[in-house]
Structures are given as structure tokens and as C-alpha cells.
Design a binder for these strands. Structure first.
Lengths: 409, 409
DNA sequence: GTATTTACGAACGCTCGCTATCTATACTGG
DNA sequence: CCAGTATAGATAGCGAGCGTTCGTAAATAC
């Protein structure tokens, strides 16, 4: 149990291994249905073994049977084809922010069944719990999934999350907010394993899953706050629990980490609010620039990047400054991690190529191996998608007795 | 093979799993011998199964049988006790530097059988190969291990190593030196899998193994050059292949990465040579300081730390400067990785508490979770030890069909 | 010297997967 | 319209391995 003994056992264990092997093979090719013959080939098992496993999985509701595909007309008796029955164990992802609640429901194969978003003006903690209930029931209804069927749920929370206790540090976004209450609340609604994780971590998981395969991913969430998730070969790297907190990296002029202030030096320097402030100052200093024209009094972060895209030198200088500070802060992390790719998401990512190119140029000077630098394709859905992904991983890990078996042959 | 299909198979596979399970249980308790009853308890298998597996492993030479321990006199018939027969598959570690060659031989249980070091004044590449042959044969003789018995060998090389091709970048220590030749040479001597890896990586592996257990370790090798190895839950993190190259982190005053210069900014700032240079300059500026007294003309890195330990303010200022630069460079990496511990090894680590405390103070200001900061206990043997460790891991991974089986029960 | 405790060893029954064979189904070609 | 063929599914026999149970050996305690 607690000891990490290598499992072993009798023939029933063997049976379970083989059933899991078949199930895993089906999962890997999802959503494409598979013929039994293909399963035989992929698992290396004998046909009767596979057939028996398929029967068992059909009975248990994990697989569903397809009729012969009329499009694929080949010689001989048509094969029955099976695929994952996603409804067997749907999962739920939850992204709670101070102004927005998003809930997604996904089936086992990773197909999105529903996605419900609700925005509002700063709820209180009490109101927020009510909104969460509503959105969850709405999402479940849209997906046509009864609440008791949900096999796992993951909630995203900003701040540093202890994955076991659910305790959260450094998150004063909503007054009176407690992630522990959130967990309790959701547990009351769903009666299934409910987990909590950092939003940057979950976004990273989603992006890594979208990119597929192996390698090291550093996924930066760049908005008012700055965080990053690290995914190594599909697994999240948590460190002691606070890995990826790049917002607290010191800049050349600011290295103060204050427990009272939830923001770190880099966030103060290049967070979206800081970018807007830099833009406003630049507009004041250069009243006849395109930047001042575009933004006016209420100059926004987006205005800075828009003006820079129009080649306004004043805005471009601001972008350069931001990119330089960001690259200098990130370079040590890139040197140490040596990631395959660095993906930038969050609100600032909407800036697009203007910012990306500037960062890329700066980063190239400061690193050895230059990772691919990209913008997140998932936009604002990254966090929910990642939450669903993690719930999915949890379900699969519970279901498959052998997660990895390095075939020596 | 190439596909990562979950293994499965017939009863022979089951047998192999159970045998491996028993072997693994013995390995975990090494070097303490185990009674069969204990194996039954730890593996969860039935006694006949364990007995059969033990017989098989004894025949194959993986286990050895102990007589009943006269010290442990308890009631009843004395139990047969078995332990790993280390000589079954000894491994070899090799650390090649420009001025020193070290070879270690270890048995399966991790016991060091022999360790042979040879130093010399800058050999040529050709001479070096000859020296390597001599030291290897000497180490094998001392360990009483025939060359053909060696099950795996790992060689350490400075620079960035591609773990598959064995190609090495950025290592001009020995003119005409090629790690590919090294691999070929060792393969010619040993006829077993020969692998190559970065010396900082291997040192990290050794330190992680010595500390034991899980967590994230950042092991810094600090000498003339600066490198680090990252070990996460016992596995080395390589990134694209150049992970841990902290020597190239920019400092506040220097951010030039030049392909011609094998040293990076941080190495130029706080490498042992740079520390000595700072010390010499400080001594010149303050001729009547303890530092100037101690070091004289040929002032060394060690002199700086010695003077600082004697509370010479001039030397202390130099140490402060070095610690500050190092901490500022490392802080972003610590924030991103959030390691359980940071261990410093290499020549500069001999400075001891003077440097460590200074770094700790600086790092505390710049990070959120403060990892344990320690000096490597392994001193100069870290790299060879790590090489043996990696060879050991390779052998075990080949032997055990199921490396990790998350017991769901 | 006997009783007790502990561990080893062997026989039996059970489950499981693999090989081989037979049956079912649909397309092809005369 | 009917045989031929190719593919897939179903079934029996065999072998291998594990687990349970019982008997036996070896040491200590009284």
C-alpha cells in the first residue's frame, strides 16, 4: 500500500493486466474505432484473449460496439469494431476566477461534451459558491450527464496549491475565498474524487496534451499575474508545490519579495497592468504619437500592442522594454530546464507576433539551445481543458493497473 | 518495440513479473539479507511462488544464500536468508578529466568494489586513451572482476552530451579529444552497453541517490566551470540535452554568450578562476589585509575563503560579491524548479560554510520556498559514483520487466 | 526428553492464456 | 444464381503458473 512494492500476483492479476492492455490500446487510437484484429496486432495478445477482454469491457460499459462501417467495404466477413464509450466515466473541469466561472464536461476519450461560461462583476465568496453550483448543473445538463456519473473533477485555483490538503497560499483575488470550501462544495455536489491545482499548471497540462508526445514544456500564463506550468514527458512538475512561480523572479531594478504583496517583481514589471502603465507614461511623454492617439485617457495593454503592430516607435520601445525584462527573467529558467518549447498564454498573449518576436530576439541572445517559442492556441479555455485533462488522467490511472511497462523484448 | 504498447502476455510473463518482484524486494533492502517469510510479506505473493522465484534467482546467480545468522537466534527452525549476489553483474564508472582519470567498479547492490584514480599533467588525447585502459584494468583487477563480467559502463564527460549519439559540444579541455573515440575505446575493452553523460548530471545522480527518496534536486558543480544536474524523483532531467547549464546565465553586468568562448557569463563572474582574480585585485587594493598576507603573489581561490573564514573584511566583501552574483543567477531557476534541495559540489564547495551562508542569505531574499542548501558530502568522487549509479540503473531497468506498477489496491 | 515454534517442501486444484480448428458472413466471378 | 475465397468470430484442448493445504525438518524452552 504505502510501500512501493512492485505489484504481482496470481492469474487474476494477469487477467487484469491484459484487459487493461486492451483498454489502453483502444484509448490510444481514440476516437477511431478499432477492429479486434487490430487490437490483436497492437497488444501482441492472442485473439481469444483479446475477444474475452473486449467482452468483459463491453459488459462493464467501458467499450461500445459499432456496426460494420459501410464506408469501409472490404472482402470477407465484416469486423465488429469497438471504441471507448465515453459516457462510462465523464469528468468535470472547473475554472474559478473572481469574475468568471467556467465548467467543462468531457468524456473518457477527451471529447468535450459541454462548456459553460458565466461572467459577472466581482461576486462575494458566498455568491460565488452559488454560481458554481448553477454552472455545474447547467454544464452537466447540456452534456446529458447525471451528476452521480461523474468519475473525477478538478478545480483550478490561482495561487500556490498544496495538492493534498487543498490549502492555498497567496491568493487574495476574492475576499473571504477559501479553496478548501470550494473543494467541500464540489464534493457535496458530485460525490467523486475532487482535486485542486494551480491554474498555470492546468493550462500547461492542456497545452502539453494538445502538442502531444514527449519533451519538456514551459507554459507561461501572462496576464495581470505571471505563472508558469512545467510538463515533462506528460507529467506535471510540481517541485515542492510552488514550481513555475516566475512572477517572483527579480528584475534588474526590483528584487523585493514581500509576503504582504501577492505580486512579485516580474509581475510588477511586465504584468498587464504594468504594461498599460508604461504605455500611459509613454503616451504622456509623446502626446503626438500613434500610441497616445489610439489609447487616449483610458490607454489599455491592448492599445500598446496595437500601436506597436502599426510600427509606432513609441509603442515599439515599450514592447522592447517589456520583452527585454521578460526574456532576462526567463532566460535562466530556460537554461536550467532546457525545454522543448515555451508557450505563452493568458491575456497578454493576445498581443501576438509583435511581442513574441521581440521576446524571441532577446531570448536568443541569452540561451544556448533555443526552444520553440509559441503562443497558446487554446486561448482562454486552456485552464478548463487542463482541468478536464487532469481529471481524465486520474480516472485512467485508477483504471489501468500498469501505467507503464517498458517492453524489454 | 517502438510503440509504447502496454505489455501483456501469458503466464510466462506473469512468472517473470513475479520473479522480478522478488528480486526487486531483495534489492530494496540491500545490503541486508532477507528471509523468505519477509519476502512473502513484502511481495504479497504466496510462499511457494516466492520459493520458486528464489530458487530460480539462485540458479541464475542473482542471489546468494546465507547461512543462518548466529546472532539472530530466535525460536524455531532457522530461516534461509538470501541477499543480492553483487558479483552477478558488476558495473563500471569512468570519470575522464584533462588531468585526472578515475574508474570505479561497483556491484549490483551499490557496494563499491574498487576505486582507482590517476593524475597526471595534461595528457594528449592519444595518451589519455592509453591511461584509461590501464586504469580500467587496474580497477577491475582490484575488484577481482573479469572484464567480460561487466554488465554496463558509463563514462562522464564535461560539456553537453547527446545521450544517444555520444556527440559532445563545447568541450575544448583536451585538444583533439572526442567522446566518440572514448566510447569506442571502452566498448573495445568491455563488450557491454557503454553510455556517456555529462559530469554534472552524473554527480547529481550520485548526490540524489545518497540523499535517497523522492523530490527535486538541483546539484551544482562549481569549479572553474559551472554546471548543474537536475534529478526529479530519482530520474535525471535532461531537457533537450542541455539542461542545467547554469554557467551561461547572464549576470547584471555580463550577458554575452559567444560560441567561440566555451565559458558563459556566470562562469566568468564566479568561476574559481574569477574568484581568485577578484581576490588578487582586492589584495592589491588592500595590501595590509589578512587576505593579502595569506595569499601573497599566488593568491588562490582557497585563500579567499580562508581569509573570509578568519573574518577578514576584505575577503568577506569578495565572498559577498560572489555569493550575491551566484544567488541572483540561481534564484530564477529555484523559483521555476522549486527544488527540495540545492546541493553544491565541485572545487569551490571546499569553501564551506563561509560561502554557503552568504549564498543562503542572498537566496532567501529572492525566492518563495527556500530549498535546503547543502554542500555535497561526496566531494570529488561524486562523478564516478554517479556514473556507477547510472550504469546500475541501466542494468536494473533491463532486468526488471516492470519498473513501476502503481498498486491501486 | 518432550513440547513448542518456526520454516521448508510437496501435492492438489484453480484460473488463465495460447494454439488449433471450426463456423459464420460477405464479396467476387463465372 | 451459385460456388469460391477471404476475413472474422467462436470453441475445445493443452500447458503454465499461482494459491491453498498438509506434512516434515530443525532449532529452542521447559
Amino acid at each position: 500500500m504505502s510501500k512501493g512494492t512492485v505489484g504481482g500476483g496470481g492469474t487474476t492479476m494477469l487477467r487484469r493486466i491484459n484487459v487493461a492492455s486492451v483498454l489502453d490500446a483502444v484509448r490510444r487510437s481514440a476516437p477511431a474505432p478499432l477492429r479486434v484484429a487490430e487490437l490483436v496486432e497492437r497488444t501482441g495478445l492472442a485473439r481469444p484473449t483479446v475477444a474475452q477482454a473486449v467482452d468483459e469491457l463491453l459488459d462493464a460499459g467501458w467499450l461500445q460496439q459499432h456496426g460494420p462501417d459501410s464506408a469501409d467495404r472490404s472482402l470477407g466477413r465484416p469486423a465488429i469494431r469497438v471504441s471507448l464509450r465515453g459516457r462510462a466515466a465523464p469528468v468535470l473541469g472547473l475554472d474559478v476566477g473572481p469574475h468568471r466561472v467556467t465548467v467543462g464536461v468531457s468524456d473518457l476519450a477527451g471529447r468535450k461534451l459541454s462548456l459553460v461560461r458565466r461572467s459577472g462583476p466581482g461576486w462575494t465568496a458566498q455568491e460565488l459558491l452559488g454560481v458554481i453550483s448553477e454552472v455545474i448543473t447547467e454544464a452537466l445538463a447540456e452534456a446529458e450527464v447525471p451528476a452521480e456519473d461523474v468519475a473525477a473533477a478538478v478545480a483550478a485555483s490561482p495561487g500556490i496549491v498544496d495538492e493534498h490538503t487543498g490549502r492555498v497560499q497567496l491568493v487574495p483575488s476574492v475576499p473571504g475565498w477559501s479553496a478548501i470550501d470550494l473543494i467541500k462544495h464540489v464534493r457535496g455536489l458530485l460525490d467523486c474524487p475532487v482535486m485542486l491545482d494551480n491554474d498555470a499548471n492546468l493550462a500547461a497540462l492542456a497545452i502539453a496534451a494538445a502538442r502531444g508526445g514527449t519533451g519538456t514544456l514551459l507554459a507561461v500564463q501572462w496576464g495581470e499575474r505571471l505563472g508558469a506550468g512545467i510538463v515533462i514527458d506528460g507529467r506535471l512538475h510540481r517541485g515542492t508545490g510552488a514550481a513555475g512561480e516566475i512572477g517572483f523572479i527579480a528584475t534588474d531594478t526590483d528584487d523585493v519579495i514581500n509576503p504582504e504583496d501577492s505580486r512579485g517583481p516580474l509581475e510588477r514589471a511586465v504584468g498587464s497592468e504594468a504594461i498599460a502603465a508604461l504605455g500611459r507614461q509613454a503616451a504622456l511623454d509623446n502626446p503626438q504619437s500613434r500610441l497616445a492617439e489610439l489609447g487616449g485617457e483610458q490607454l489599455d495593454t491592448a492599445d500598446v500592442f496595437a500601436a506597436a503592430a502599426e510600427r509606432d516607435p513609441v509603442a515599439q520601445a515599450v514592447v522592447q522594454q517589456v520583452a527585454r525584462a521578460f526574456a532576462r527573467a526567463l532566460a535562466p529558467a530556460v537554461l536550467v530546464l532546457d525545454p522543448t518549447a515555451v508557450v505563452i498564454g493568458g491575456g497578454v498573449a493576445r498581443a501576438g507576433a509583435v511581442l513574441l518576436d521581440a521576446i524571441s530576439d532577446q531570448l536568443r541572445l541569452l540561451t544556448l539551445n533555443h526552444p520553440k517559442l509559441e503562443l497558446s492556441a487554446l486561448a482562454e479555455d486552456a485552464v478548463v481543458t487542463g482541468a478536464m485533462r487532469m481529471a481524465l488522467d486520474e480516472v485512467w490511472q485508477r483504471k489501468l493497473p500498469t501505467p507503464a511497462m517498458t517492453s524489454t523484448t
